[in-house]
């Protein structure tokens, strides 16, 4: 009797979360999928996908999203790893430094965008600072950037805010790693760089994969900062299109369908990228 209860305990514990997901995740997701495959009359049709793919900005939004994800994830991982290595050391004030380094991660995207917009607007504090230290004569018109430079701009701003969230996962991994693994490396003849490359990174791999995947998922879904910095349409992203159809033109006949279809497209792309990444990182592990 007791044994049987024990056997079922984990399922009792999991049940509420699973039921919740049944109602509030699977149901809407299925609905979204279903509706994306029906036309306005409710008949099965691929019309939504055709419309999405034929949208002039779709290609740009797709490329931007991919480019943004790849570049920002790589950049953020490298920087976050370096920062984590630094903060893993023991020195005076490391706690304070950690606190300061963490601040940007909690700042809402809305505020991040405003923060940098007040910075990069023509009379913003960036120009002010540059003029004070005599680097420039005239204010630079930062916000007129478009295309690749605007994208890079967004990557930098995004990096500013999400770097700490990547960093803390790596830092926790480093701190939970047994110190003697590294020390054994040093004793047996490895340099700092070799210890990092041959010992720390491979042992940290599961943590790294976790951090990168979480980041990848979030990076594919960027839109808010772009919209608040540059407005809709200047640097289009996939999720930005969803926001566009819900926020700016919610009254169009097909806005609802378009946003649903876009979200299905985003999900499929995210899913594919994560799978590819997992495959890739698994293969690497075996070498």
């Amino acid at each position: 009797m007791k044994r049987r209860i024990k056997k079922w305990t984990p399922y009792f514990l999991l049940a509420p979360a699973l039921i919740y997901y049944g109602f509030f995740w699977i149901r809407p997701v299925i609905r979204a999928f279903y509706e994306s495959f029906t036309n306005l009359e409710g008949k099965m049709s691929l019309i939504n996908y055709i419309e999405v793919l034929n949208e002039p900005v779709f290609k740009e939004a797709f490329t931007n999203s991919m480019l943004f994800a790849v570049v920002s994830v790589i950049l953020q991982f490298v920087l976050a790893f370096m920062l984590a290595l630094l903060l893993n050391k023991k020195f005076k004030g490391v706690k304070l430094l950690l606190f300061i380094a963490l601040i940007p991660m909690a700042v809402p995207p809305t505020a991040v965008a405003i923060l940098w917009r007040t910075g990069f607007s023509t009379y913003g504090w960036v120009n002010n600072l540059l003029m004070h230290i005599n680097l420039i004569e005239q204010p630079i018109l930062w916000m007129t950037a478009d295309g690749t430079s605007a994208l890079m701009f967004l990557i930098l701003i995004d990096t500013w805010t999400v770097l700490p969230s990547v960093m803390i996962i790596l830092l926790a991994g480093l701190q939970n790693m047994h110190k003697e693994y590294e020390e054994a490396g040093y004793v047996f003849g490895a340099s700092k760089w070799q210890v990092t490359k041959d010992i720390v990174i491979p042992i940290l791999k599961p943590t790294i994969v976790t951090a990168v995947i979480l980041r990848l998922i979030a990076a594919m879904q960027i839109w808010m900062i772009s919209v608040m910095m540059f407005g809709f349409g200047r640097v289009p992203f996939l999720v930005e299109r969803i926001a566009y159809y819900t926020d700016i033109v919610p009254m169009l006949e097909n806005s609802y369908k378009m946003s649903l279809t876009y979200s299905v497209v985003v999900t499929v792309i995210v899913l594919t990228s994560v799978t590819i990444y997992l495959k890739f990182s698994n293969r690497q592990r075996r070498i």
């Binding site: 047994h178 003697e180 693994y181 020390e183 054994a184 490396g185 010992i199 491979p202 042992i203 791999k205």
Partner: peptide, 9 residues
Amino acid sequence: FQSYAVWPH
């Protein structure tokens, strides 16, 4: 080492 520090990977 006390924990052996045999590299797990």
